[in-house]
Design a protein around this nucleic acid. Structure first.
Lengths: 126, 126
DNA sequence: TTAGATAATAGTAATTATTATTATAAACCT
DNA sequence: AGGTTTATAATAATAATTACTATTATCTAA
């Protein structure tokens, strides 16, 4: 594979994601980075997000709503979706990897993993 | 809310979903129903799928890939996605609702539930 | 049963999120 | 610095879904 050339646009995206606790969409990231690079293109955002996900430097969260969200925290963790304010929060919790074994009990195939998020009301909306 | 008027198109969608073990997308359903009602509109498919989901007569599976899938089996169950053949299969398994409590342990908000699917290789692809 | 009211449909346009294309600009190498 | 290559901005294209509207089907009650 070709070597990845430096770009300040990509660096700014990575930097922004590593400092926010929000879990922004591509569009939100676009608006934020545009404050620094006013004529950055949405295509650049999408391409670099995919590159960073491939390199394992950020995480893509999908399936929570219509659009993908991104997370600078690459440590394995679960997410919580508040049904009121729609925010995505990080969950610090014990492993639940044993659910793979529960699922595999009566299943003839091979379960490699699971995709899970939790939902409810966050502290502030409660 | 206004009363729901009968329509044979909606009935055909419900009927098809109750007899298939596939977990078709709106587009697949569209192709199947068109065999019976050749000029059914895709908009009709989408609108009726949403109505049936609201009435609790079918289930919408989202977050597995780009498009939503639908399931005529309304009993609570989990799904498995084969990474090889991309099929969605039903899982018969014990409850894992206790993961809500695990998630709630260090969380200040209120966890109401979780959305989970499992992935790996199905029997036939193994 | 049939006329009037209302909801559903087909056909089409619009929207949203994302990916593809391409000419120009920035980064890298020697 | 000059040449090569990758990245970018700008835009077009795509895919899934929702919105709109004139016509048709269903329902209701006389």
């Amino acid at each position: 594979m070709a070597t990845l050339k430096y770009s300040r646009q990509r660096e700014a995206i990575k930097e922004y994601l590593s400092h926010t606790k929000e879990h922004p969409t591509a569009d939100t990231i676009y608006m934020r980075i545009r404050e620094i690079y006013p004529n950055i293109s949405l295509g650049t955002i999408y391409r670099n997000l995919s590159l960073l996900v491939e390199k394992g430097e950020i995480i893509r969260i999908n399936g929570i709503d219509g659009s993908d969200h991104y997370d600078g925290n690459t440590q394995k963790h679960y997410h919580f979706l508040c049904k009121d304010c729609q925010r995505i929060l990080d969950l610090e919790m014990d492993s639940i990897d044993h659910i793979n074994d529960i699922a595999n009990k009566n299943f003839p195939g091979e379960i490699e993993g699971h995709a899970t998020y939790f939902y409810g009301r966050c502290e502030e909306c409660n």
